[in-house]
Amino acid sequence: PDLGLTQLFADPNLIENLKKNPKTSEMMKDPQLVAKLIGYKQNPQAIGQDLFTDPRLMTIMATLMGVDL
Rank of each mutant, 00 (worst) to 15 (best):
M65E: 04
G4M: 15
K20R: 13
Q7G: 11
E26H: 11
M58N: 06
P1Q: 11
T24H: 03
M65C: 07
L3A: 14
L5G: 05
G39E: 14
A10H: 10
V34H: 02
D50K: 03
M58A: 08
T24V: 06
E16D: 10
P44K: 03
F9P: 01
N43P: 02
M61V: 15
D2F: 04
L57F: 08
M27N: 01
N17V: 12
S25N: 09
E26A: 10
K23Q: 14
M28R: 00
D30F: 02
I60M: 04
T59W: 13
P31T: 10
Y40K: 01
P55I: 09
P31N: 08
G39F: 15
N43L: 03
L3G: 15
K41Y: 09
K20F: 05
P1W: 02
M27P: 01
D54G: 01
I60D: 00
L57C: 03
T63H: 10
E16Y: 07
I15P: 01
F9V: 03
F52V: 12
K19Y: 07
T53M: 10
T59N: 05
R56F: 06
Q7P: 06
G66T: 08
K41N: 12
P22T: 04
K29I: 03
Q32P: 03
L37C: 02
D50I: 04
D50Y: 02
D54T: 01
L14Y: 07
G39V: 11
D54S: 02
L33Y: 03
N21V: 02
V67A: 14
D2M: 08
Y40N: 01
N43G: 05
P1A: 11
T53A: 11
A62D: 07
I60C: 02
T59D: 04
E26C: 07
K36S: 04
G48A: 15
N13V: 03
K20T: 11
K36L: 12
Q42D: 15
L69P: 13
T63E: 09
P12Y: 03
Q32W: 14
T63M: 14
Q45M: 13
P55H: 12
M27G: 01
L37V: 05
D2I: 15
P12K: 05
L69Y: 03
G4P: 14
D2S: 14
L37R: 00
G66W: 06
P1F: 02
K20I: 09
P55V: 10
N13A: 11
E26Y: 07
G66P: 06
I47N: 05
K19I: 11
P22A: 08
D2R: 05
I15R: 01
L3C: 11
T6E: 13
A62I: 11
L51G: 05
N13I: 04
I60V: 07
D50A: 06
I60F: 03
E16S: 08
L5Y: 12
V34A: 04
L51D: 04
G48P: 11
L51H: 04
P12D: 09
F52Y: 12
A62W: 12
P1K: 03
L64P: 00
D11Y: 03
K41D: 03
A62R: 08
N13K: 10
D30E: 03
P12Q: 07
I15N: 01
D68K: 02
Q32C: 09
G4N: 15
T6S: 13
K23T: 09
R56N: 04
K23V: 12
K29M: 08
E26F: 09
N17M: 11
K19S: 10
L64F: 05
M27H: 04
D68W: 02
N43Y: 08
T53I: 09
K36F: 07
Q45Y: 09
I47H: 07
Q49I: 13
T6R: 12
P12T: 06
L64C: 03
F52N: 08
M28F: 03
A10M: 14
M58R: 11
D30N: 04
L57M: 13
E16G: 06
D30Y: 01
K23Y: 08
S25R: 13
G4L: 15
M65V: 08
D11Q: 08
P22Y: 05
T63G: 03
K41M: 15
D50M: 04
L14Q: 03
K20D: 07
E16N: 11
I60W: 02
L5C: 10
D54K: 01
P44M: 08
K23M: 11
T63D: 03
N21K: 03
K29Q: 10
I47F: 15
L69W: 03
L18I: 03
K41G: 12
L64R: 01
L33I: 06
K19T: 13
Q42N: 15
P55R: 09
R56H: 04
N21P: 00
V34Y: 04
I47W: 14
T59F: 14
Q45H: 13
M28D: 00
P1Y: 01
Q45A: 13
L69S: 14
F52W: 13
L64G: 02
R56T: 04
I60H: 00
T53Y: 08
L5P: 07
K20Q: 12
G39Y: 15
